[in-house]
Design a protein around this nucleic acid. Structure first.
Lengths: 354, 354
DNA sequence: GTTAGCACTTATGAGGTGAGAGTGCTAACA
DNA sequence: TGTTAGCACTCTCACCTCATAAGTGCTAAC
């Protein structure tokens, strides 16, 4: 069966209406409010046929129709009317990101918060993979009790490990020297390259091979994603949506969002090439809880990955709003981080003397 | 009216029973299960009198009785039977804290997790005030783009700030020297003492006064409590308790626990001298949400504050279990951190050369 | 292809009922 | 004076019924 224009129009009305009201929509209301030139009976015929095509479902015979996941997908891809945010919202984004430092933790938190505030849904953010970050500085700081703190600074991110054990015989001065050597060795390297230079580096450290081993292990550990990189914002926002008047839904939802692992899984395996990715519960992705929808975007600026951010909420989500917010936040980030990047590059150019 | 022994006994039965079953307890069940030597009518008379004293309330005439907050308080102070944890639980605690590093973030997280797992309630932890921490090491690490990272290491805690701006004219070498001078200046000082030495320190830095200003500001900022210090564990655990089958209660609860500020307020203003502190919703503390109860303990080891930890849940809480867990975790921490402290002290002694 | 009309289905809410649980009170008893 | 049996009273809860409203599917006519 072909999708006539009228079918599309009606489907769009159903989805729009349902997103706004959360009430199953009836043929009568469509005919009265939106398609005044035909009768409810005609609409009814169209609805029946849309149902046959898999776009609509009914809870019970007399309950109006509700869009299926397939309908949402079609809506997002073809039907949704484009439009931008209000001045107020754009302003909010602008102000939120002005004067932010280049610390990745702050960035992830504030991006996540902005998205949650503007969309009125719970938002999740996960920082960029550390793999490709290049080491800017690295130091071993003595703690005076047989331990040293390993600090690693990269372009967008400060990493640190718990303490590293150092031999009792190692003096503060030796530690300092080791620190300098290590800094020289690793400066400019990406974390993903550590493995490749491992053997070479170890060879240089005859006496303090063990310390170096620990340092390398710590560095390698940062290429794995960490719980701390996952940020949640606006968990309480789900209560603003009537599907979460039901305790079981809340339970389900809360169980998922209280596990950073699960969140990371849901958000994480995005295809980087898709700018906006929509996963609808159970049908697209078995990690996404049933009855939930996840919309994510992976941001980057100046060729640098800035992490993946998104919104998690009911399938009946205001996709238009959410997608528009995600797009605009992306643009804003690109602008701000992009301009910062430029400054940095210039300075780097000046400073560099190799 | 005086509290006869029998009244106490009956009150204890009511509280115990209600904590276990969450069902209002009736005179009949008390007479049948616990006080077989008197009739339900007698119990009824006692219950009526306990109600008059303010220890019990009824939702409706035929609904059995429920303990009032006052009853819980009395129960905790006088009636509750003491007893220790099972071997299994003690083992769990033991294992959880073995091999932990002295990084405060890890500590707070794992303590909070252990408490939540063992009590089956949501747990909150807040790290120790940084005020009294003594600086062990401090460094400025160049990031190569007009910024430097300030890293501060203290005994129990690693602090770090976002980047600090440094003058363009400052070379890496100068920065390194400044870093060394700063380390010497502040080593051994408590964060709370920064203010006192501020002027003196600034005087030493003719050329790079501005950098020093930023460093001092950053240091001072750490004496204020920060959101990041508050940790939440087992939020989903509330669903294991029937009072949270009600959506409004869940909403209330979730709204509170998703704000780190609110959590800090609830947990934070403990009197340090009280080992275990119980706050019952609205009657003890207006920060604690109504219908909620918060039990906290402030831990310390070797004279060092280790933070405040606790449990938040329904007023009908298993106080005995919770308090026992908190006590045992406290003891375990004291043992472990205490022994670590000793090691550290010895080494410090060796190393010190002033 | 569209429409009016009508029978059919189902949710929802009001109203009623009986069982069950628990209490308060009273009068009798030790 | 404390304890008890007995009984009337209150309140919840589950269950049923019933009327209503909303919405559909189908059919026959346009």
């Amino acid at each position: 069966m072909k999708m006539s224009d009228r079918k599309k129009k009606i489907l769009q009305i159903v989805v729009d209406e349902y997103i706004n009201t959360a009430v199953p929509v009836s043929s009568k209301s469509i005919a009265e409010k939106h398609l005044t030139d035909v009768s409810s009976a005609t609409v009814r015929n169209e609805l029946a046929s849309l149902e046959e095509l898999g776009y609509l479902t009914q809870f019970h015979t007399s309950g109006g129709r509700v869009p299926s996941p397939q309908a949402y997908r079609f809506y997002i891809e073809e039907l949704m009317e484009k439009g931008n945010l209000s001045e107020k919202d754009l302003d909010y984004i602008e102000r939120a990101f002005s004067g932010k430092s280049n610390d990745v933790e702050h960035l992830v938190k504030s991006v996540s918060k902005v998205i949650s505030e503007l969309t009125d849904y719970t938002s999740v953010g996960i920082g960029p993979h550390a793999d490709e970050e290049r080491i800017k500085n690295i130091a071993l700081l003595s703690c005076g009790d047989g331990n040293a703190l390993l600090v690693i600074v990269t372009g967008m991110r400060i990493l640190r490990d718990s303490f590293i054990e150092i031999p009792e015989s190692m003096t503060d001065e030796e530690l300092e020297n080791a620190s300098k050597v290590i800094a020289k060795l690793f400066e400019g390297k990406a974390l993903s390259e550590i493995k490749e230079v491992e053997d070479e580096v170890l060879a240089e450290f005859g006496q303090y091979r063990q310390v170096m081993h620990e340092v390398i292990d710590a560095l390698k550990s940062y290429t794995r994603p960490r719980d701390e990189d996952v940020v949640l914002s606006g968990a309480e926002k789900i209560f603003n949506h009537p599907e979460y008047d039901d305790i079981d839904n809340v339970k389900n939802f809360l169980t998922v969002i209280s596990s950073k692992d699960k969140l990371a899984e849901i958000i994480g395996d995005d295809n980087d090439e898709i700018q906006i990715n929509v996963k609808i519960g159970s049908c697209d992705d078995k990690e996404v809880p049933e009855d939930c929808s996840v919309v994510t975007a992976t941001y980057s600026a100046g060729g640098k990955n800035l992490g993946t951010y998104g919104v998690i909420g009911p399938i009946r989500m205001d996709y238009h709003k959410v997608i528009t917010v995600l797009e605009n936040v992306g643009k804003a980030l690109e602008g701000i981080v992009g301009s910062k990047k430029k400054e940095t590059d210039n300075k780097d150019g000046k400073d560099k003397d190799e």
